[in-house]
Every structure is written in C-alpha cells, then in structure tokens.
C-alpha cells in the first residue's frame, strides 16, 4: 500500500482496459438482446453444474444442494462396485454405439441416393416423405412398435411367423432389443439427418460432374470420386458431435421400451440414474452416476475431436 499512487493509476488503467476491449458503451444494446439467453443458460445449465458437487457430498434435506457432509469418492466407488456396473456399461455402449454407427451411415447413403433422383418433383416428394417420421413423438413410435410387434396381433409378427420364424416376441426378448431399437431409430431419423448431407451435395461444383462425365466416369464411379469426398468434412463434424452424445442417447425411448423381459440388455446408465435418483431418492448416488456418465461422454467427444484434428484437420474448437 506504500506505492498507492502508482497502483491506483495502474488499477484504473487495468479496469479501463477490459471495458474498452469489450466496448460496453457501444455494445450495450447487444448485451440487452442477449440478456434473457444468458440468464436462462446461467440458471438452468450452469447452476446444476455447480450442483455436481453433490456427487461428493452426503445429501442433507435440511441443508440443500451443497450443504451436506463431504464424502469424497464414496458414491463413485459405490457405483464402480455395484454388480450392475459392467452389464450397464456394456448395454449403454452397445445400444448407443450401434445407434451412432448405423444412425451415422444411413443418412449418408440416403442422401447419396436422393441426390441421384433426376426428376425434381420425385426428389421433392421423397424428401417430404422421408423427413416425416422425425416429427412423430418417441411415445408414438414405441406405441407403434408395440402394435406392430405384438406377439398375437402384430403385423410384423405375422409376417415373421409366415416366413417360418417361431415364437417371435420382439418386445419381450433381450436379443431383439438392440435391432428393434436401432431399426426404428433409423426409420424415424434417417430422412431428417440426410438434409445436411443433401445440402453439402447441392454445394458441389457442377464442373466436377461435367469433368467426370467427360472422363467417361459412370454414375456409380462419380458417387465415389465426387459425391463422397464432398461429404467427408460434414461427416467428420457430425461424427464428432454424435460421439459427444454417445452415453446420453435416447433415455426416453429406452425407458419406454424397457420391460422385465429385456431388462438384462435395456438397463443403461441413463435409466439407472432415473431409477436411483427419482424413483428411490438416493440423490447423491444418482448424481455421482450422472457425473460418471457425463465425464465419459466428454472423453469420447475430446478423443474423437483430437483424432479428427490429427487426421482430417477438422476440430470443433
């Protein structure tokens, strides 16, 4: 405090600098336009993040979110030690991994196919119809699965029996769970997810197609040498994004499709978090499991992003 004169000037300069850098006075209207979005994000996204410390505390109803006794890694250790741990990890990765992989490839193929439709109106109609299922709710999709796959009256069950399969109960079997889940997922989202690839294809320089034609390339070869290379950057970005959501895909649908007969394959981290936390009120334990899942997710995202950066020079950040 002896050099008050200098520090005061310094701190005034330091205080003025960020203000000048952010241009508060010039941009205050932009901050006003942003204010609701910032407030909602701060409250509903960042406050819960602050509440993650509950994973390391004993939840205490009287002391609220962050007042409980510090117990460190007790609940994470409890989760790692539960006999359900490995089956649940396996199920989560199996379901999410298959969905991400199949759900990633299918829209690319569909976009390549739609791009080959020369007739403008037919192309438009194909797009309209394939986008449609995206807008149907998960509850309705699972309801439709139940009706179509019903062991006694289901249409698909009858077809399967007609083809000689015996005792098909697609909804009550652990083996059928993943195929049913993934196929219905592709049915619902494939069309919609192809939009972005169609956009990328519509941006391809027409001269490339002309050149390919002059070189005598068949349409099949043009797909491989013009279309697919044009899609690679978009594919990479979407793949990274999908990997980031790998462990929290589809709570709704898995939860709705879950029953006692398929539980051995349909119990995943997200449904377990719900059961432990909301159904049986073990708040700290459930938070710890949720944190575990979020961290793994983030890890997937970071690793995929790093690989993409190294090999394709594409990165999210």
């Amino acid at each position: 405090m002896s050099t008050t004169g200098i520090t005061a000037a310094d701190s005034r300069a330091a205080a003025a600098q960020p203000r000048r850098r952010w241009h508060w006075r010039r941009d205050w209207q932009l901050w006003v336009l942003l204010a609701p979005a910032i407030v909602f994000t701060a409250v509903f996204a960042y406050v819960p993040m602050y509440g993650i410390q509950l994973a390391f505390r004993e939840f205490d109803f009287s002391k609220g979110l962050t007042g409980g006794k510090w117990v460190g890694l007790k609940y994470l250790a409890q989760f790692l030690a539960t006999p359900n741990f490995w089956p649940m990890i396996r199920n989560t990765i199996l379901i999410a991994g298959t969905t991400v992989l199949v759900g990633f490839i299918a829209p690319v193929l569909l976009a390549l196919l739609i791009n080959q439709i020369a007739h403008a109106r037919a192309k438009r109609l194909t797009q309209t119809i394939t986008y449609l299922p995206q807008f149907i709710s998960v509850v309705v999709v699972v309801g439709m699965l139940q009706v179509f796959l019903s062991p006694s009256t289901g249409l698909i069950t009858k077809i399967a029996t007609g083809l000689g399969m015996e005792n098909v109960n697609f909804l009550g079997s652990a083996a059928a769970f993943v195929p049913v889940y993934v196929i219905s997922d592709v049915w619902q989202h494939c069309g919609w997810n192809s939009i972005i690839y169609l956009a990328a294809l519509s941006g391809v320089d027409p001269q490339l197609y002309e050149a390919a034609k002059i070189d005598g390339a068949s349409r099949w070869r043009t797909i491989f040498h013009v279309d697919i290379p044009a899609l690679i950057p978009t594919m990479t970005v979407l793949f990274i994004l999908n990997m980031g959501g790998v462990l929290n895909t589809g709570f709704d649908k898995i939860f709705l499709m879950q029953n006692t007969l398929n539980l051995s394959i349909s119990e995943v981290i997200a449904t377990y978090v719900y059961k432990i936390g909301i159904v049986s009120n073990q708040f700290s334990y459930s938070t710890a499991i949720g944190l575990f899942s979020t961290l793994i997710n983030f890890g997937f995202l970071a690793v995929t992003n790093a690989l993409a950066k190294k090999f394709a020079n594409i990165s999210l950040w």
């Binding site: 996204a45 819960p48 509440g51 993650i52 979110l65 978090v273 979020t294």
Partner: peptide
C-alpha cells in the same frame, strides 16, 4: 450441449 449438471442437481434446482 455437451456438459450438464445431470438429473438430480437439475431436479433439486
């Protein structure tokens, strides 16, 4: 989009 507090902190909030 990629990192969240999770179900229970959200519920308590």
């Amino acid at each position: 989009m990629f990192f969240s507090g999770g179900l229970i902190p959200t519920y308590l909030l």
